[in-house]
Design a protein around this nucleic acid. Structure first.
Length: 426
RNA sequence: GGAAACGUAUCGAAGUGGUCGCAACGAGCCGCACUCGAAAUGCGGUUGACCGAAAGGUCACGAGAGUUCGAAUCUCUCCGUUUCCGCCA
């Protein structure tokens, strides 16, 4: 949600910033509605003041035995005018909010405009492995090693689902344990959220109304606002935990991480080149979220990027970090860096973590505030999130980058303690 | 899933149609006084949003709708909490 005051003060600057995201903003309607809202409020509040004044006279007159009927007529007329005015105000507020809540977040100043082509690689770690044999792709490797059962996954749930089996399940679990230990060591609080969330969570995270068709609803036949959906990322839960609350300033920053499966329809994105586990309807992810003081949210952002990178780096994988152009950041985010893994068989880098700063965009939507010691007033917190990490891209990268000529796969050093010391999967 | 009770400030809680939501009363918290200091005591303060340059005004008793000149108070719907019953792969 954008700040209407900021829009009113500087509409052109905001419109220019949104244009970098490819969004054509027209604030004229909103400002007009807001003008009407303000003038109507002034008008109606004067009537309400009068009504309150007259109303308080009634018991006094009654006590004095004076007639009150004439006053009732006046009150009735005032009441009607007030009701009409209130209805008009409510309508204007709805229009304003509907329009505002569909607008994307303002990208940070330093972002390049445009889409993917303007993303910039800002860090590269390691280099693509060189093989002196013909490397296999992860689908073949995972199938042959018995890590993933794609066919039976489809049998159970259809396309886009798979089953982790044996060492595959253990490897998945090892990764998650490794992440958990790292986050705990960094002082983050471990959260296991509900996996079914209410509409308000999707709205607060800025994913609804725009993306409400891309999640799985549990009861499709009723009004969505009363139903629950399967969470598409734990961010949706974490970012709404303090909705409507005023957080003590001294508690900031608050740092959390949560494990959850993530459920996404991924409608229209099924592509033949994305075989295997690159894009599924259900995948495991650990998500990091920080609630930061606005003055320190940039530091929080850097910390999350560093954490996501470190997790990959300690696995020994070749990866890079990209700073996304304004148009490639999701609607709610002011800034996003992607951590991207090298997938040898695809010859490209695939995102395994997306670290973003929403600034106050989400906090405004779900009313998450802290009390600012300088002003003594509540102010919106900044929310940040980043995957730490998603496993469904990691396993392909691990099996492909660490494959041996005999079809076995070397286990990254940091995972061995979670796998009973096993160093090669064969 | 069914029934009942309840939902008021930081907490407990009064108010059951008007002059009591700048919300009684109690507790907590902050400040001041008293004190060498503390305790006790006394005094004062202690929600948020909105309109307004300001003065000032408006709104909020879980949420929404209704009845009424007027609703914390009456009616309805929804949400939540508690207790009891049912179900429990």
């Amino acid at each position: 949600m954008l700040d209407l005051t900021r829009i009113r003060n500087n509409p052109q600057a905001i419109a220019d910033a949104l244009a970098k995201k490819g969004y054509k903003a027209d604030f004229s309607k909103i400002i007009e509605w807001d003008d009407q809202r303000k003038s109507t409020i002034t008008e109606i509040e004067a009537l309400k003041a009068q009504k309150n004044k007259v109303s308080s006279q009634i018991p006094v007159l009654k006590k004095a035995g004076q007639p009150v009927e004439p006053i009732f007529d006046e009150m009735r007329k005032l009441g009607e005018e007030i009701a009409a005015g209130d209805a008009k105000i409510a309508e204007l507020v709805d229009s304003i909010n509907d329009a505002l809540s569909c607008m994307p977040n303002i990208p940070d100043d330093d972002l390049l405009p445009g889409e993917k082509e303007n993303n910039r690689v800002i860090k590269v770690v390691g280099e693509p492995p060189k093989f002196d044999f013909t490397p296999k792709n992860h689908v073949d490797l995972c199938t042959e090693l018995g890590l993933i059962d794609y066919e039976r996954g489809v049998k159970l749930s259809g396309n886009g689902f798979w089953i982790y089996r044996g060492m595959g399940a253990r490897l998945e679990w090892a990764l998650l344990n490794y992440f958990v230990d790292e986050h705990i060591a960094d002082g983050y609080e471990f959260i296991l959220p509900p996996y079914q969330l209410g509409y308000n969570c999707g709205y607060g995270a800025g994913q609804f109304p725009k993306f409400s068709d891309e999640v799985y609803w549990l009861d499709v036949d009723e009004d969505k606002k009363r139903n629950r959906f399967m969470l598409p990322t734990a961010e949706t839960a974490l970012v709404n935990m303090f909705a409507g609350e005023i957080i003590d300033e001294s508690k900031l920053p608050m740092k959390f991480f949560a494990y959850s499966p993530c459920f996404r329809k991924e409608a229209g994105s099924a592509r033949t080149e994305e075989r295997g586990m690159i894009r599924g309807h259900q995948f495991n992810k650990i998500e990091m979220v920080q609630y930061a003081h606005p003055e320190h949210s940039m530091e929080a952002f850097e910390e999350l990027v560093e954490k996501a990178s470190r997790l990959v780096e300690k696995l020994g994988l070749h990866f890079r970090v990209s700073k996304l152009a304004a148009g490639d950041c999701s609607a709610s985010m002011a800034r996003t860096y992607d951590v991207e893994l090298w997938i040898p068989s695809m010859g490209i880098y695939k995102e395994c973590s997306s670290v973003s700063n929403a600034n106050d965009y989400q906090a405004r939507r779900n009313n998450t505030r802290y009390r600012d010691s300088k002003t003594g007033k509540p102010a919106y917190v900044h929310t940040l999130n980043g995957s730490g990490l998603a496993t469904s891209r990691l396993i392909p990268a691990i099996v492909e980058q660490f494959q041996n000529a005999d079809g076995s796969v070397r286990v990254p050093e940091v995972l061995r303690k979670y796998l009973g010391g096993i160093d090669v999967i064969k």
